[in-house]
């Protein structure tokens, strides 16, 4: 297998006694869309900052494109486009001027920089707002401008910190579509952090669930589901017009089917959970036995269930941790604010 484009070994960050990130190991391959999923204060942003060399890890190393991020941040920043969660622009410059500035900082030749910035703005759908001041932009437009800003230096990896925060649903859909296009057409590797499960689910190949500074699980959504609901990962709900009064026989027959683990019957539906996906067999069974099937629903496990399950398991130990994170953040940003 080729070398991963992002490699994290035992990355740890302490803030005083608080462990923001605790011994993180992770590898992301080229062309992947990886979702870092976790509640607020889980250490997602800290991890990203360490990846970019913007903060120093207490222990461990992060390599991007084979280069140590804390030792050689300039090289890493050339390869990585980063969009922070609260992206800001110079309010009295126009969108184009903001972008041209960043383009120049990245060493794009003076002749090309304007045209390239214009192209980027068109790509993210801001061609009408080219000469509008960034201060007048809505949140969604800023987010798009942020993406243009990331793309103008043509990075190999883009890291997005909470990219969908505060945008309306239509905007989120467009934005995610844009990211998906970039990934598919240009083969860009994308690492995004979020606490919005559904959005991550839509575009990520792989997710990592990150709670209290630790990566609890990683893999694609199916694998995660299979790990979690190992006993009976597949569930089918069959609705019929009428089930017999005496359900014992039916239950026995159903359990006799291959791979079926659990059967729950109610007045007019049956829930069957099993190790394998045998929906056709189940339907055939019902039809053969003369039941009037009105509907069949396969239940798949989404991130919601996965998330829920992980957080249920971790809720108890994480409460004090989350609180201290909140306190840390408050004191960190508000330290001088109160003066």
């Amino acid at each position: 297998m080729e070398q991963p484009i992002i490699e994290i070994h035992g990355l740890t960050k302490h803030y005083g006694s608080l462990k923001a990130v605790d011994d993180l190991h992770l590898a992301i391959h080229k062309g992947e869309v990886f979702g870092l999923l976790g509640p607020n204060g889980a250490g997602k942003s800290t991890t990203i900052l360490m990846l970019l060399g913007l903060t120093e890890p207490t222990a461990g190393e992060a390599h991007i494109c084979g280069v140590n991020a804390s030792r050689n941040p300039i090289y890493v920043k050339k390869k990585v486009g980063y969009m922070p969660d609260n992206v800001g622009f110079y309010n009295d410059l126009t969108a184009l001027e903001n972008l041209v500035y960043i383009g120049r900082l990245n060493g794009i030749p003076e002749k090309e920089v304007k045209a390239r910035a214009g192209d980027m703005l068109q790509q993210v759908g801001l061609e009408d707002a080219l000469h509008k001041k960034a201060g007048t932009f809505s949140r969604g437009m800023k987010q798009r401008l942020g993406l243009a800003d990331v793309l103008i230096r043509q990075p190999e990896v883009i890291i997005l910190d909470e990219p969908t925060l505060g945008i309306d649903p239509a905007g989120v859909k467009d934005f995610l579509e844009l990211i998906r296009q970039l990934n598919q057409q240009q083969g860009m590797t994308v690492l995004l952090s979020s606490h919005h499960l559904h959005q991550v689910q839509q575009i990520c190949n792989r997710v990592g669930i990150f709670v209290g500074g630790q990566l609890l699980a990683e893999g694609n959504i199916e694998t995660l589901a299979a790990n979690l609901f190992r006993s009976a990962p597949y569930e089918v709900r069959v609705a019929v017009k009428k089930l017999p009064e005496q359900t014992a026989l039916l239950q026995e027959q159903l359990l006799a089917l291959p791979a079926v683990k659990q059967v729950t019957l109610s007045a007019n539906s049956a829930q069957i959970a099993g190790e394998e996906n045998i929906t056709p067999e189940i339907v055939r069974f019902f039809v053969h036995n003369g039941y009037d099937v009105t509907g069949v629903q396969e239940r798949t496990y989404g991130l919601d269930e996965i998330y829920q399950r992980y957080f249920e398991n971790n809720l108890k130990e994480n409460i004090p941790n989350a609180k201290s994170t909140g306190f840390f953040k408050r004191s960190f940003t508000g330290k001088w604010g109160k003066q």
Partner: peptide, 14 residues
């Protein structure tokens, strides 16, 4: 406070 500092620092500049 504008949020531009972190964006600048993410550029390949010292």
């Amino acid at each position: 406070s504008n949020g531009t500092l972190i964006r600048l620092m993410a550029q390949p500049i010292y």
